Computed example of a mutant assay.
Amino acid sequence: MPLSTIDPTTALVVIDLQHRILARPVTPLPAAEVVARTAELATAFRTHGLPVVLVRVAFAPDGADMPPGRPVGPRPAPPAPVASAPDPEEITAEIRGAGDIIVTKRNWGAFYGTDLDLQLRRRGVTQIVLTGIATSIGVESTARAAYEHGYHVTLATDAMTDIDPDAHHNSLTRIFPRLGELGTTAEILTLLDSLG
């Protein structure tokens, strides 16, 4: 569904824009574009006094808190640490701001096993705008859960990317239209400005 409105109580929820994830090859958009557009949105949300939630995925060094199960394929290994590199689990500085809500997840989606829903409800949030990596994994899982929790869901289509172009396309064309509204960063910014 095309973008029609932004509630006055909307939060920006950013999925996994941390160094470890940003170091992986992605498509169809480069990670730098996703970060730049997300940074634009984050600045606008803060300017309007709306919450910005930065979600990251992290596990204990021994992997003891990884979700159980038997995935078909191997879990991707993080890139090898570099002595001068920043903490791989740290959210990139381009999108961080004072007062942002930080949520650490240990699953694909940002709702299960976290306090995300509580943080949003305490602030009276009725709608979320989603950005991040990967479209078909963390973003889609969070969008599905947000829909199930009763939030209006908006997806910033040019502020997300994936590790698989077919999976990205499937999320954008088949899944997201059933969960909420889709719009570009520019369209979302225009609606935000109309809030006054």
Rank of each mutant, 00 (worst) to 15 (best):
A93R: 14
L192I: 12
A64C: 02
S141L: 06
G124H: 06
T142F: 07
A93F: 03
P28I: 09
G132V: 03
L130P: 02
G63D: 08
R75V: 11
L172Q: 09
Y147S: 14
L12Q: 05
M1H: 13
P79C: 09
A32H: 12
S84M: 11
E33Y: 04
G132Q: 04
L182H: 11
R106G: 13
L130A: 04
A11I: 00
T47S: 15
E40G: 12
A36M: 06
S194Y: 05
G97Q: 14
E89V: 10
P51K: 02
D65K: 15
I95V: 07
V82N: 08
A85Q: 02
P25M: 06
T10S: 14
A145G: 07
M160N: 01
W108A: 15
A93S: 10
R123T: 02
R106W: 07
G124M: 08
L12Y: 01
A110K: 13
L116R: 14
Y151M: 10
S171V: 15
P68M: 11
T157G: 05
P25F: 02
H152K: 12
P61Y: 03
D117F: 05
T173A: 10
A98Q: 15
R75A: 13
E40L: 14
D7C: 10
V14Q: 00
T38F: 11
V125G: 07
L118T: 11
I128R: 05
T154D: 09
T173W: 07
I137R: 12
P81Q: 01
P28E: 06
S136D: 07
P25H: 04
P28G: 09
L195I: 15
G183Y: 06
V13M: 03
L29P: 00
M1K: 15
P79N: 09
A98S: 13
M66H: 08
G109N: 07
R37T: 03
I163N: 01
D117S: 03
R174W: 11
I95E: 00
E89D: 06
D87W: 10
F45W: 00
V55D: 00
G63H: 09
P25V: 04
A146C: 00
Q127Y: 01
R122N: 05
T142I: 08
L3A: 12
V129C: 03
A156H: 00
I175F: 10
T185C: 12
R106K: 12
T126G: 15
E33F: 03
A80N: 14
H48P: 01
I137Y: 08
V125C: 07
A85W: 04
D166C: 05
L3N: 12
I163W: 07
I101C: 09
G196W: 10
Y147G: 06
I137V: 13
A110R: 11
A159M: 01
V129G: 03
I6Q: 03
R174S: 10
L179N: 08
L17S: 02
V129S: 04
N107P: 00
P88E: 02
T114N: 06
E140W: 02
T135K: 13
A134R: 13
P81T: 01
L195P: 09
L17W: 01
D115T: 12
